[in-house]
């Protein structure tokens, strides 16, 4: 034991045990939302207290932690969480996706393919994918238990009748292992296909007190229809800084004359490409993500 005023990874041992048990049950039933007793954390709910509690329960002193907010390592939110665990859990930190063993994320999956040695922890604001259809928790639980997902499909199909396509661009619902419909957190639908991979994925919703999981190599299917298959495509631009054509882009305001450009939302991915010599049409221009308004 140390003489610090706080426990390892901030949370007390009984709280971590409770969260750890919830994580294990989440792993055992992929896509099912396990209730847990969320604790007050020294940061506002909007900062991802659910993800922070899951990370706190998982981190060991041997971990290397990366924290991203909309793909960027340098936002106030990401920097604060990284510093929090650097101090309380004595973990190493990194901005390099490939060097991290635990990655806490808000609203993105890194572009670089994750490995078996990595855990991706998502911050989740609203874990219940059926909530907008049914406000009652008792009813949504019943719908999940009976696999009553017809209303969800009806809603998506209404989108098609109204817009000619499914308009949902973020938090696009998925079916996990042919069983539970799950909210992937507000990642762009572009990221949905990356959820089938080698890394363990854990989801923490602090305010809503839910933990859920997608184990490695688990079937994750974005809901769609035979005549309207799921389309994860993004706007057809290359990154203005690194030229990548296969990354998710943010629109960045470049000046007060309405100038704008599209750049990778994943700052580590973009920076690594530029360091390797890749260029885009605005290479050499303002190198910043300030003013990103989303694609």
């Amino acid at each position: 034991m140390t003489d610090q005023a706080y426990n390892f990874a901030y949370l007390d041992e009984q709280t971590k045990r409770m969260i750890r048990r919830a994580i294990l049950k989440g792993v055992a039933v992929p896509g099912y939302q396990v209730p847990f007793a969320s604790r007050e954390m020294p940061m506002p709910y909007g900062w991802g207290t659910g993800g922070v509690q899951v990370s706190a329960a998982c981190l060991t002193p041997d971990d290397t932690l990366k924290v991203i907010d909309q793909g960027a390592d340098d936002t106030t939110n990401a920097v604060s969480i990284r510093k929090f665990f650097e101090k309380t859990a004595q973990v190493a930190v990194t901005e390099k996706t490939g060097e991290a063993t635990v990655i806490q994320t808000r609203h993105r999956i890194p572009e670089e393919t994750l490995t078996e040695d990595q855990i991706l922890v998502y911050q989740v604001p609203i874990p219940e994918p059926l909530r907008f259809l049914e406000p009652s928790e008792v009813e949504t639980r019943k719908m999940h238990s009976l696999e009553e997902y017809g209303l969800m499909y009806v809603k998506l199909y209404e989108d098609i009748s109204r817009h000619g396509e499914i308009a949902t661009a973020y938090a696009y619902p998925v079916r996990v292992e042919d069983r539970y419909v799950m909210d992937p957190s507000p990642i762009p639908k572009f990221d949905n296909p990356k959820m089938e991979g080698a890394a363990l994925q854990l989801f923490g919703a602090g305010r809503e007190q839910r933990i859920y999981a997608v184990p490695p190599y688990t079937k994750v299917v974005s809901l769609d229809f035979e005549d309207h298959p799921f389309d994860p495509s993004k706007a057809p631009h290359p990154c203005a800084l690194c030229g990548a054509e296969d990354s998710y882009l943010d629109e960045v305001i470049t000046d007060d004359q309405g100038g704008r450009m599209f750049v990778c939302s994943d700052t580590d991915f973009c920076g690594s490409r530029r360091a390797a010599g890749f260029t885009g049409e605005m290479s050499g221009a303002q190198d910043t993500h300030l003013g990103a308004v989303g694609e």
Binding site: M1, N7, F8, A9, E13, L24, C58, T60, L200, P215
Partner: peptide, 20 residues
């Protein structure tokens, strides 16, 4: 011996075992 850290390592082993 070092409850918080030892439990953290133990949990990760258990999590890894159940996840794979």
């Amino acid at each position: 011996a070092d409850p918080a850290r030892d439990a953290a390592f133990a949990f990760r082993a258990a999590l890894d075992a159940l996840s794979r």
